[in-house]
Design a protein around this nucleic acid. Structure first.
Length: 772
DNA sequence: ATGCCATGTCATGGC
DNA sequence: CTGCCATGACATGGC
């Protein structure tokens, strides 16, 4: 369903844009606003799936709690909304075609990427393609890198099916011919392909040792690209300026793009297409926008995009969302079930602000949960007298069944009545007064969506824990709440990789104990080990980006925490934890180029410098075997080795010292690494707990709100029923003398006030007695 | 010159 | 008891 939705949405958008560009007006509004649930939901999404998560995260951002403000998902969401509004705007404003500059349609074929480029073209500054050159035939682009890349994007749920799957050979040839035509412009496809470059950057980051080259993409890279984007005066084409080493860059003109689209499927199943169309329209006011922004639309894979957080743009997005949601609710408001007759106090009570969303699924049953009785002070004395236990027996009073009660409640406008008192997640004043806030409506909508999700989960038989898990799943689907990956299950999984990686890289003698100790450590959540290890060991690991984003998020929260981030912390340092000494030795060997340049003496000096003190000692004492063997051999083999040689007492002592020191060295490395991971895990636990606390506080506020709503409704119903009662003379009963009493069987009795007070006191005593 | 940090080493204790 | 590991404390070298 998700892929179908994206497929349809992007396809429709592309088709619409195309039609608009060639002059056919498409009234998207009729489709979007019409009450055709399937299509509407396909295009706009099932509301809570998107809005809940994103608003939730937006609120977190505004809280200053946790979410990196540069989060690409927010951008993605907003731009998706913006894209819709821009598509709508297409039939109002005709985008001048001369301003539609260049579209990225495909990445490079291998052939146009210079096959002579050295494989070290992963550096950011180098413009050579990321993917490996598979061969001179540039017609077929089915390298593993290509497919893997598409799959990666697809896995993240952001893209349409890969192009190559549906392209015929002629199409691909045409594409390549077109690209080659633009090669003389010096434009390469991957120049615009931010995801491409981002991935490249990631791999590069892993490969690079020094921190000096670790400048971020959004910093110099994006600026450099923005600077390098030139506009052809004649054609209006925009193409990157000649970057040194960027001879393989091409760009597609609009005409070529259209031709290309004609040649391919009608919807142009290229995932990058709609994104770049959006970027084009965005680029109209600001002539050259950083590529990071347009690529922010590409996929959630690019979560780490560090484009500047454009507050104004976000505000526009907020406004557009408000507009859109107002439209949604206005059109759906007529369908709201109002069971109360006109003039009913209920309807007057709950008919505020019709253009705000509705909290579905708030049931009286939930709201009358115990433990909230302290909130009764919010009530009028009259209702306060009602025993809590009887509130559920109110149901028979409602004209129809409980379902209609729910629907009646669902028509109540909580957003108009309440506002979350704590925007700050750490605020403790949950019962505080509702403060006005310009974002209040929006945030409230988000919260209500969130609560609706909770309610839905509860109604469907989930327990609250499952509901929260459901909520977290929504968060994780967005790719924003990355901490959901730290659930116990993922901990255990990463734990497995942790132990395996450590054992694989440790010496054979230490591997078994190392893995066993690691699994013991897993009880306290020992997962970051694998994260950093995977970075170091698996070059070009694709799944690494979310973790990096997570660290970005953390670092944003507190810049001083940068020092604690393993990834950044390891920059410039040779963290060779868990690497076998043999690997260390080989890694310490100087590159061949330096060997050629230097004389043999220099080589010897260099090697001497690379050797440890123990190695020097061993050489001085003429130990006949390597320190590697001394340290890493099992005891039996080690003793066997010693027995083979006639060694002096000094030599034996040195060998044992070397072994002891070597083992201790590795132990110290492991120990420090463990310590670091423990600290990081503790920090993450604290964050998780803080997030849970904030969520629970929000839920509490919501429940209190619902409870207050219920009480008001009960009060209204009470007054209505009481007001309609007449005595035998046809006169209304005096509220000061009579009261309604709810019996356990659902019946309602009219009893004198004095008796009601006595019963109420008895009801109050019972729980106290039970507590004792 | 100084402080910080990563790393190596030693001492010690537990298994 | 010996070997191994974990870890606190200290030393050292680089930045």
């Amino acid at each position: 369903m998700l892929s179908l939705k994206k497929y349809l949405t992007e396809g429709l958008l592309q088709f619409t844009i195309l039609l608009s560009l060639i002059g056919v007006r498409v009234d998207v509004d009729t489709y979007l606003t019409s009450q055709l649930p399937p299509l509407r939901e396909i295009i706009l999404g099932p509301s809570s799936a998107y809005t809940q998560t994103q608003f939730h995260n937006l609120r977190n951002t505004l809280d200053g709690y946790g979410i990196h403000p540069k989060s690409i998902d927010l951008d993605n969401y907003f731009t998706a909304r913006r894209l819709l509004s821009q598509v709508r705007a297409l039939d109002r404003f005709q985008v001048p075609t001369t301003e539609v500059n260049a579209w990225l349609v495909h990445r490079d074929p291998e052939g146009s990427v210079s096959g002579s480029q050295p494989s070290s073209g992963l550096a950011l500054e180098s413009s050579s393609g990321l993917q490996d050159v598979t061969g001179p035939d540039n017609g077929v682009r089915e390298s593993e890198t290509e497919q893997g890349f598409s799959e990666d994007l697809e896995d993240l749920g952001a893209v349409a099916p890969p192009v190559s799957g549906d392209l015929t050979k002629e199409d691909i040839d045409l594409i390549d011919i077109l690209w080659r035509q633009d090669i003389d412009l010096g434009a390469g496809r991957e120049v615009f392909d931010y995801s491409h470059r981002q991935k490249e950057q990631d791999v590069d980051k892993e490969l690079r040792d020094g921190g000096e080259q670790a400048d971020t993409w959004a910093g110099e890279g994006a600026e450099a690209l923005a600077r390098d984007l030139l506009v052809d005066g004649e054609t209006g084409e925009s193409f990157p300026a000649q970057v040194p080493g960027g001879e393989d860059q091409t760009a597609l003109s609009l005409e070529e793009c259209l031709r290309l689209l004609e040649a391919t499927c009608p919807f142009g199943e290229n995932a990058e297409f709609p994104a770049n169309v959006a970027s084009i329209t965005e680029a109209v006011p600001s002539e050259s926008e950083p590529p990071a922004l347009q690529n922010s639309l590409l996929s959630p894979l690019l979560t780490g995009t560090e484009s500047p957080f454009d507050l104004e743009q976000q505000w526009q997005d907020l406004m557009s969302i408000m507009e859109m949601q107002a439209m949604e609710v206005n059109t759906s408001a007529s369908e709201i079930l109002y069971n109360a007759p006109p003039g009913d106090p209920l309807s007057t009570n709950y008919s505020l602000a019709p253009n705000t969303p509705i909290n579905q699924n708030v049931s009286l049953h939930q709201a009358s949960l115990g433990g909230c009785s302290q909130d009764f002070s919010l009530f009028s004395p009259e209702v306060e007298n009602l025993p809590v236990a009887n509130s559920s027996t109110l149901l028979p009073l409602v004209p129809s069944n409980s379902t209609s009660l729910n629907s009646t409640f669902s028509s109540t406008n909580l957003a108009g009545l309440f506002f979350p008192p704590q925007l700050n997640g750490t605020a403790n004043d949950t019962a505080g007064p509702e403060l006005p806030d310009p974002l209040g409506g929006l945030l409230d909508e988000a919260m209500l969506d969130e609560i609706s999700l909770m309610d839905l989960a509860i109604e469907e038989g989930f327990n609250p824990v499952q509901a929260s898990q459901l909520e977290e799943e929504f968060d994780s689907d967005s790719g924003l709440s990355l901490d959901s990956s730290h659930s116990p299950s993922s901990l255990s999984s990463s734990e497995g990789s942790s132990s395996s990686s450590s054992s694989s890289s440790s010496s054979s003698s230490a591997s078994s104990s190392a893995s066993s100790s690691f699994s013991e450590e897993g009880a306290v959540g020992y997962s970051s080990d694998s994260e950093t290890l995977d970075l170091e060991e698996a070059e070009g690991a694709v799944g690494y980006q979310p973790e990096y984003s997570k660290f970005c998020r953390m670092s944003y929260q507190d810049p001083s925490q940068l020092s604690c981030l393993p990834y950044l912390e390891h920059v410039g340092h040779n963290h060779t934890y868990n690497m076998a000494p043999s690997a260390l030795d080989s890694a310490d060997l100087p590159p061949p180029s330096t060997l050629k340049k230097g004389s043999k003496e220099k080589q010897a000096d260099f090697l001497d410098k690379q050797m440890s003190r123990d190695e020097h000692r061993a050489r001085a004492m003429k130990i006949p075997f390597t320190n590697d063997k001394i340290i890493n051999l099992p005891v039996e083999e080690f003793n066997e080795l010693l027995s083979k040689y006639q060694l002096s007492e000094a030599q034996l002592s040195l060998i044992r010292d070397i072994r002891r020191r070597g083992k201790n060295k590795m132990a110290a490395q492991n120990c420090r690494k463990r310590k670091l991971d423990t600290i990081l895990n503790l920090k993450r636990d604290v964050e998780d707990l803080q997030r849970d606390k904030a969520r629970l506080l929000r839920e509490k506020v919501e429940f209190l709100r619902s409870l207050r709503q219920m009480k008001q409704k009960v009060q209204s119903l009470y007054q209505e029923v009481f007001g309609r009662l007449r005595d035998e003379n046809g006169r209304p009963y005096s509220p000061s003398q009579y009261a309604l009493q709810y019996a356990g069987d659902g019946s309602v009795l009219l009893i004198p006030r004095t008796m009601a007070d006595q019963q109420a006191r008895r009801q109050e005593r019972k729980p106290k007695d039970r507590r004792k």
